[in-house]
């Protein structure tokens, strides 16, 4: 189950193209007739194949940001450009892995993974092969006929990952997807995510409040501050992969990140 990563995994010498641009995003909520600015001056761009962690304390608006990117809520002002085109509604080009279990409880593991492919005009045999491929990519081939209630929380998140990766989204949005898992399973899932990223090279925006998770995964960490939610820092993580938590560079990095979280 444990995926092995190559020593030097993602050194891509060729310049990567910007695929997602967030321009001056602002979100104001009206709570009991008081206007609360949750997000302000959110401005960044994402290159194809990048793994970005949006990192901050709870309540800083990072989930709201992800929901706006997913198209579930509209921003008060600002624009989101995907490959230069504005987006406003949810769609399979920006797939989401939620923190909660959102599998369809009446479908088996395999049927859940196949769900998004249905209604697409693909050949039946080809999509059948795709489903098999993704079942094995997340290591659930043996559990294909199980129902969500019959598998563990970690397995459910693997299904949630597979059912969106199979749609080949331009950007994968992940909203603290492993937060409700136990520490060991969480690490397993992080490794799985990295190994899938390795194979499929999709672009990931990953929301987390866990320092170690951010450093383990990210090419870049966007540190968000509170009241209003702003991006305070944009840190490149240039540690070699696979990253070991015991390594001194890792510890240095995490100390630094903790410090930034405090001020």
């Amino acid at each position: 189950m444990k995926p092995k990563l190559k020593a030097i995994s993602r050194f891509q010498p060729e310049p990567r193209e910007t695929i997602l641009e967030i321009r001056n995003l602002r979100k104001v909520f009206n709570i009991n007739n008081a206007f609360v600015t949750v997000l302000d001056e959110i401005d960044f761009s994402v290159k194809g194949g990048e793994m970005i962690c949006i990192f901050g304390r709870s309540g800083c608006g990072k989930s709201t940001l992800l929901n706006i990117l997913g198209g579930f809520i509209a921003p008060s002002s600002g624009a989101i450009l995907l490959n230069g085109k504005g987006v406003s509604k949810p769609g399979p080009d920006r797939c989401v892995v939620f923190q909660e279990d959102t599998l369809f409880p009446w479908l088996t593991v395999k049927e859940n993974i196949a769900f998004g492919l249905k209604g697409r005009t693909t050949e039946k045999k080809a999509s059948e092969e795709e489903i098999e491929r993704f079942l094995s990519l997340v290591g659930l081939s043996e559990f294909r006929d199980y129902l969500p209630r019959e598998i563990s929380g970690g397995m459910k998140q693997r299904v949630a990952l597979a059912r969106v990766l199979i749609l080949k989204p331009k950007v994968l949005l992940m909203d603290e997807p492993f937060a409700s898992l136990d520490a060991q399973t969480r690490e397993e899932m992080q490794n799985l995510l990295l190994s899938l990223w390795e194979k499929l090279s999709h672009t990931v925006l990953f929301v987390t409040h866990d320092v170690n998770e951010a450093i383990t995964l990210a090419d870049r960490i966007l540190v968000m501050g509170k009241d209003p939610g702003r991006i305070r820092d944009d840190i490149s993580v240039d540690l070699l992969r696979p990253r070991k938590r015991e390594a001194s560079e890792f510890l240095l990095f995490s100390r630094e990140l903790y410090a930034r979280l405090r001020d």
Binding site: P90, G91, P92, E100, T102, F104
Partner: peptide, 15 residues
């Protein structure tokens, strides 16, 4: 019905 299930459908492109 859990609204997240409908959201999940929407993001997978279900009309």
């Amino acid at each position: 019905i859990n609204p997240l299930l409908l959201q999940a459908g929407a993001m997978m492109g279900v009309k």
